[in-house]
Amino acid sequence: MSNDTLIKIERVEGRGCVVRGDDVDTDRIIPARFMKEVTFDTMGEHAFEDARKDAKGEHPLDQERFQGSSILVVGQNFGCGSSREHAPQALMRFGFNAFIGGSFAEIFFGNCTALGLPCVTLPPEDLASVMDSIELDPEQNVEIDVLGSKVRCRAGEFDAGIPAGTRKMLLEGSWDATRVLLDAGDLIEKTAAALPYVELPA
């Protein structure tokens, strides 16, 4: 394996978009009816579709001031519900490269990391400051410093929660799981051969 092929993510910066509310589940991020698209290509158009219809143009994703943003700022337990990779795919294809939130649902978090989309957490007061600041000044630059585990914006610099393993994966580029796994070579077949129920393929 060539380490050059790995993409290292040390920091992400851009403008922020604030979607408030806790327990936003994957059915809301991408309604199940769009899961039957055979490819992810058009998924971005349908991000938050029902919520956006309900909000009649007032949903943050449709608000003029957040157009062109690339960092999504969310509440607690974001992405709970189905293990639907369509959710991070939809958000990625809509234009988001990273997430700042109070907490993230485990599978959603894992799916994001696997796509190279950092999810970092902030304690409630800091999260509130960042959200307020971005809403007041949506033009500002928001920075997620993965290397330094910080979030920076006009409201200040905050210590961001990134699990050590996840941080390392982003920094090393090992979030690209398939290539890392392929690197195990025939250790895979060795493990398989020792299992009572697995026959090696012909």
Binding site: R84, E85, Q89, N111, A114, L115, L181, A184, I188
Partner: peptide
Amino acid sequence: FGIGTSQVRDLLATQTMAMA
């Protein structure tokens, strides 16, 4: 385990996945 599509890809390619 329930997994996402990228892990389905990993499993097709390697029959393994990364997990804590």
